[in-house]
Design a binder for these strands. Sequence first.
DNA 1: CGCCTTTGTTACGCTTATGTGACAGTTTAA
DNA 2: TTAAACTGTCACATAAGCGTAACAAAGGCG
Lengths: 237, 237
Amino acid sequence: MQAKPTILVIEDEAALVTLLRYNLERDGYRVVEARDGEEALIVAAEENPDLILLDWALPNLSGIEVCRRLRMKAESRNTPIIMLTARGEESDRIRGLDTGADDYVVKPFSMTEMLARIRAVLRRIRPALSEDVAEFGDIAIDRVSRRVRRNDREVHLGPTEYRLLDHLIQHPGRVFSREQLLDAVWGSDVYVEARTVDVHIGRLRKALIANGERDPIRTVRSAGYSLDEQMKVTAAG
Amino acid sequence: MQAKPTILVIEDEAALVTLLRYNLERDGYRVVEARDGEEALIVAAEENPDLILLDWALPNLSGIEVCRRLRMKAESRNTPIIMLTARGEESDRIRGLDTGADDYVVKPFSMTEMLARIRAVLRRIRPALSEDVAEFGDIAIDRVSRRVRRNDREVHLGPTEYRLLDHLIQHPGRVFSREQLLDAVWGSDVYVEARTVDVHIGRLRKALIANGERDPIRTVRSAGYSLDEQMKVTAAG
DNA sequence: CGCCTTTGTTACGCTTATGTGACAGTTTAA
DNA sequence: TTAAACTGTCACATAAGCGTAACAAAGGCG
């Protein structure tokens, strides 16, 4: 397990929050809370959680509204959301899924089910986060042995290229600006030229396509770089 | 347990079994097969595999049932299980994880990913702590007599080098930072320079490669050291 | 088609990380 | 008590990686 996934719990019922926090932390997650919609948006922006548990019935801003606004922001666009709905709110539930929630759980729920769904959603949306081995197409990165392989061929990367790939692979398909990459890979405190990112992307590319293999990195002109989801091709079945 | 890890493949699709066998054996594993649930339980008991690949959709006994029964037997209680599920069997997958599977792979899968996951799971579950004798490739360490041999040649190590090797060998392939090694080998209370680790790694190397043998220790720049799993494949016997 | 912007690539001086031998102090074994 | 073994640290050599600038190539736009 890498780092610790952060889960944002948006819920106004204190007892339920306590219960969730207890069980989530026991399962190895970091928990941050928000009591209403306004607070939720702020905390979401600050903490950039890996997953959001969102109660449907909220004071202040409705769950559906929070969901929609989260989806409008770039940094939380791909954050998985699990809704908590009361039994019978069928139509709301459907609207929720339309709005961009990834899953829902009906109250009252069993904690086992909740934990299982969280695991499942985290794995589905961002396999790279919860695993110590992440995979993108035919590229695999093993964070424990710090090895990168492509098609069973070992790929040697320098520390910076390694971190760069590690970061990109955690958000497959997402485009990062040079500034974002500097922030995430180099650290927000160091100062280096933005163009340095280009050079390292180049080095990463060179290492990954040592054979005639396809370039897995997509350049988005005047925006940045991302892993190219087109490339993902599976082999067996 | 060291020699070659044995993997039990429980799968009824012959073509997939062939593919898996080919790749697994190429990666240095021994493969045994079972075509259905009944057979699986028998073979599991006979071969006592180090890891089980379990197809979810099986004739005869369902995967979940096999999983549960394996978990009930003492000798297979701790054997890691990786499930193979078809896409969309979301709820089954969750049930599977609850039943005690350690990981799952969705079909169709890439062989690279599969191999990476197998390595990861084996590494996670297997740190051979309790064993009296641990082996890595052609290196053997006997914790009772506190002796180390390589290729039937006795290797003399000082106390620190011995503990260092002992620690590394418990997590083959895992990269440890100098700080982690100081913590684990020297103790979290003593203060020594991080560079001291380098010196002892050097001494350990020197002792282990007294002949023209290959260096079993991998330096991962800016990260630390690990036993080199690559070595096991090319040199083991 | 030319002009301007953005990105790719290379070379290179520089910094940092690692390998290694020496050494002085300390422990161990006989 | 003495010799041998071991330890941690330093200094120096070497290797690896880094960031930048400069130029080439590619893309966009009128």
